[in-house]
Every structure is written in structure tokens, then in C-alpha cells.
Design a protein around this nucleic acid. Structure first.
Lengths: 319, 319
DNA sequence: TCTAGCGGTGTATATTTATTCATGCATGAT
DNA sequence: ATCATGCATGAATAAATATACACCGCTAGA
């Protein structure tokens, strides 16, 4: 009976607060209540569902998918982008754009940025970064050596350098091959002072941007410039590896797949990656779905940027 | 192009804030932003209409009508109550209930409450007041003498006394007739020490509850117990009076109608009323519509409690 | 009747949020 | 090129809001 009169007042208070944007103090004065009472009435208004707040997602965003991704993989943050078709070229551009914006807005003073080159998607990201006004980033650290023949290797360092320029940071390059021909060769290479310096910075990286690679031999071979041997590849397949981050492999459960390869790769390890504050992973495309699932389960990724098709597969399919 | 990515982030922030109820600080930390930026994004979210807040009025309340009343009459606050039919008895009960609740919730420590008896609606209000736990009200002051023959007069004082008891206050009664037979008689009556004391409290009243009377002769005569003369009534009509508050008359424009009656009425004047912090007026019913319109235009009323039919007329009809 | 526990309140305070301010670019006019 | 202007930012702070606390009165059970 008098509940209606209570709610009437609650609703009126809610109206003044939410619609007329009055301060609780004003409202309290207007109605001869204490500010505390107004605050409590407003709480009651939400409990009683008298105020309803909806967030209208802009078209082309997929909060639903993002939320499912976060939930399914215990992922802190996901960004799912629109793209018209499920083809790699289109997908990469969109992911790159979104990642670029996110990174820009989100970089903070004194950051040390790690980039695992070479990835087409990361390239697209760097392409979309606007020159930063205030040089907040200290270093941009290359976290993986170059790939393929030495001429092509420069791609990796160029990418790092470009990102450093855009962010006003000092580049810290890794002017060596990502995969040494042998364990011994690696030891030699990492003896170079520049290389040592860069590697020494790995544990000061605050934000790392990484790609996620698939294990399909063709893709991997293309990326690695045939540096892996046939037996190594088959061993990988046997151990259930589904993908890699900076040539560090893992299976569908996210368990690292240790092989002799690790001793030849010059770059960030998964353990080192796990210690980094913020790891932003960029990947999309049909053939990468399983690789991404595994990557997410390594629990090293803080933000995944992907496309809506891949996201849909990730939350729908069984792995 | 990048606007979408901006809005995506804004929407995500809005979601975390409004749906997941996270603090701005958390969100800032989660996304590597400053709390100030999060606050600004949330503001942008409302501007861009990404968050929408609606207040769902409980059934049986009429925020729309209340708002129109406030607007049309420059009324600080209006309460419009549901009632099934436009008949006085029903209307009065509902108004009384709502007023009772409002008053209860809204009384504050040390208040001095004025009641202009006699009004059926105010009676209904008092009937619905729950005994107050903490005796916050200091005095309940009767602001108009009784009406009709001395036996009936006690109604007025009883009402005041009852309200005082319910609110835990000390009653300050006006144990005289509301309308003296002559100016001289009034002077004699207000010489009584009790009467003087009560009248002396008029300017300390913090909240007054008043009824609004219509001028239809039959009604007025009934109320006044035939204390007004025929000539007085006709003079009132001639001067355009449409209603009264505590037997102080005004026309449709809210202009006080001064007559010789004023000298005979023992009670609060309109000027005194205007000085009171909070004046709560209770009135409803078809024949009171014009009276209420006039009363609202006197600018002495802070809260009007009325019924939906009367409210509808007040905001619709021309006066 | 007495007492424990449950709301509900206002005051004082802690917490959270908005804004002010100083700064660092960009942009565009002169 | 130089300067005014505008815009965005974070740090500091002001403002607003939520909560802890103490208190009161009621209810229900002993």
C-alpha cells in the first residue's frame, strides 16, 4: 500500500538524478532528505529495476563475442573487429588498425615496447600508428631475430625501427637471424654486444605485441625461410604443437612444446613472455583458429585482437 | 575510420562501468589509462548516446503529469496519485496517503510543522501517518482557528493534536474560531495568551501543510459554518476570487483578494505562508481545479499533492 | 518483561569521480 | 618562421557519492 508511495519517491529521485542530472545534494535539499538517503534510494532504484542502463554497442563492434572469448579462455581483454570476408588480407588490415588505435591510446609514460616481428598483421598495425606527440615510450625492443635470407631479414628490423620512430622511442634491434643453424651458432650470435643489449632488455618490456603463428607446414616453412628441418617439423607435429608465438611452440592445451628448436631460436621465450605486464596478441584467419586457442591457453596473453569470424570459431568450436 | 575504434573502446569502458560495476580506477588499470581518461570516456559515452539510462516509473505514478505541472506553474515539486474515479471521497484518501508518506520521509530534525485545519484531505493525511520513531518535530502549529459551532471546532484542534502526537511533537493549538464575528472580536480573541503564543510561532514554521478551498458558495458556506455574510460572499465573487488557503483568498492569477474578511480570520496570512520554507498543498477533485490553479500561481506552494484527474485538468485546460 | 537482531537513519568519513590546471603538441593565420 | 589557438593529456585537487558507525525503535522469542 505504501510501497507504491516509496517507489514513487524513489523513481522521482532517480529521475532527478539520471535524467535531470542533478546532484544528490541538490535532490536531498529539494526533498528535505539527507544526501545519504538519496544515495540509498538510488541504489534501491537499481535493485528494484526502476533505472535501467543499457550500453548500445556501436555497429561493427562485437561485445558479445568479446565477452564469450574472455569467459571461455579466461582472457583479460578481447577486441573483435568487423571485417567483410574471412580472407587473410582483409582480416589482417582490420586487426592491425584496431590494434594500432588500442596501442596508441593505451601506451603510458616510460613504457618499453616489445615487438615480435615478422608478422603481416603487426606490420599492418605499425602502418596504422600515428606519430605520437609526446615521446612516452622509452624503447622499442625487437623480440625475435629476422627470418629468411639476410636481405629479407631487414624487414624485421625495419619494422621495429619504424615503430620506434613513430612512438618517439629508441629502437633496440636484434640484427641476427631468428633461427640459428645450430645451438652453437646461436651462442656465437648472441655474443654480439648489440644483441646482448637487446636481449638484456627483454625483462624490462612492459608491453609486448606478438603475432600468433599456425603450424601448417607450408605457412611455417614460408615464415622460417626453410630453416627448420623436415625432422624438426615432424617432431613438432607429433608432439601436438598447434601454433607458436615468436617461434615458441605450444599445443592445443597451451602447454609449451619443448624441442631442440628452442636452442636455435633467438628471441623471447614463453617464460619471459609470461612475465611481461601486458601482452597484446594479434591474429586472425581461418587457419589460425587452433593456434589462437592454444595461445590463449598459455595464459600469457592479456589482450587478443582478432576478427569476428575467427572469434566466432573460437567460441563455438570444440578444441 | 578510427572513430569506430575510439567508440569501441568507449563502449567497452561504458560496459565495464555500467554493466559490470567496476570502478573507474580498475578500468583505468585494466586498460592502461588514467582514471581521468576513463571519466572522460564515460562522459563521451553519454554524449554519443552509447549509454542510455531510462527511469521506469512504477505503475500508478504519473511523472509525465507531475513534470507538466511543475513546468506550467513553476511548481518546485508535484505528486500526482492514482485513483480509480474522479470522486472526492476516493481522491482525498489517495492524496492523504501519499502526502502522509511524503511528509514522514521528509520531515527533519527540529522541524516546526504548521497544519491548516479543517480539510478532509488533511484529515486523511493525518490518519495515514505512522507514529514516528524519533521525535524529530518540535511543534505542530495550528494555523487556522476552528470552524462552525464550538463543538465542531474541536475537530480542528483534535487534528492538530493528533498530528502532534504521531510526530512526537508538542501541539500548539489555536482554540478559537477561524472567523471572528468582527474585527473587534478577533482582537479580543487573539489576546488570549495561548492564542498569542501559537500565532507567535507562525514565523518559525518550517513546513506547512495546507488545503486549498474552492469558492463555490455552497462549499465555502459549509466549511465556514455560515460565518460569512451574503454581501461578503458576493464581494468575493465580484473580485474574482477562485479559492482560498486558510481562508485567505486569491483569484485565478494568484493575486490575493483583499477584503474585510481578512480582518476577521484568525490564522496564517498569505504573506506569512510565503515566507515558510516548505508549503505542502493537498487538494483534488473537479470543483477545485480553478482554485488549485490560482493557488499555484500565488507562488507560495512548494509541493502539490493531487490526483491524476485533477492534474490532467490543470495541465490541459485554459484558465 | 527482557533481550537479540533487524532495519532504517544521519553524521562523519572514506572512496570514488569530475574538474582544474599546467603542459605539450598540432594547426593555421600572419 | 612565429605566434595564437585549440585540443588532449596526467597529476593534483575539488566535488560528489558511498559507506562505516552509532543509534534508535521495533519485533519476536525466551
Amino acid at each position: 500500500m505504501s510501497r507504491l508511495n516509496e517507489l514513487r519517491l524513489v523513481a522521482r529521485v532517480a529521475q532527478m538524478y539520471h535524467i535531470e542530472n542533478r546532484r544528490q545534494g541538490d535532490i536531498a535539499q529539494h526533498l528535505n532528505l539527507s544526501q545519504a538517503t538519496v544515495s540509498r534510494m538510488l541504489k534501491r532504484a537499481s535493485v528494484e529495476d526502476i533505472v535501467r542502463t543499457t550500453v548500445v554497442p556501436p555497429l561493427g563492434t562485437f561485445p558479445e563475442l568479446e565477452s564469450k572469448l574472455r569467459e571461455r579462455f579466461g582472457l583479460p581483454e578481447a577486441i573483435v573487429v568487423e571485417c567483410s570476408e574471412d580472407r587473410d588480407a582483409a582480416v589482417m588490415s582490420r586487426i592491425g588498425e584496431a590494434a594500432a588505435h588500442f596501442l596508441e591510446v593505451t601506451l603510458s609514460d616510460g613504457d618499453v615496447l616489445g615487438v615480435s616481428s615478422w608478422s603481416q598483421t603487426i606490420y599492418k598495425m605499425v602502418e596504422n600508428i600515428h606519430p605520437q606527440k609526446s615521446a612516452s615510450v622509452r624503447y622499442v625492443v625487437q623480440t625475435l631475430g629476422g627470418m629468411g635470407d639476410p636481405a629479407v631479414q631487414t624487414h624485421a628490423t625495419q619494422l621495429t625501427a619504424k615503430l620506434a620512430r613513430l612512438t618517439g622511442a629508441e629502437p633496440k634491434l636484434l640484427p641476427v637471424q631468428g633461427v640459428a643453424s645450430s645451438k652453437e651458432a646461436k651462442l656465437v650470435m648472441i655474443d654480439d654486444p648489440y644483441v646482448r643489449e637487446t636481449i638484456g632488455l627483454f625483462d624490462r618490456i612492459t608491453t609486448a605485441v606478438v603475432g600468433i603463428g599456425a603450424i601448417e607446414p607450408s605457412e611455417l616453412l614460408a615464415r622460417s625461410g626453410n630453416f627448420f628441418s623436415a625432422s624438426e617439423l615432424s617432431r613438432l607435429a607429433e608432439s601436438g604443437a598447434v601454433g607458436d608465438i615468436s617461434l615458441r611452440f605450444f599445443d592445443l592445451q597451451g602447454t609449451p612444446v619443448k624441442t631442440s628448436l628452442d636452442e636455435r631460436v633467438i628471441g623471447l621465450s614463453l617464460d619471459e613472455l609470461a612475465k611481461i605486464d601486458r601482452v597484446i596478441a594479434l591474429a586472425g584467419g581461418k587457419h589460425k583458429t587452433a593456434a589462437i586457442a592454444g595461445a590463449l591457453r598459455t595464459k600469457t596473453i592479456d589482450v587478443l585482437v582478432t576478427d569476428k569470424f575467427t572469434a566466432e570459431r573460437l567460441v563455438t568450436e570444440d578444441f
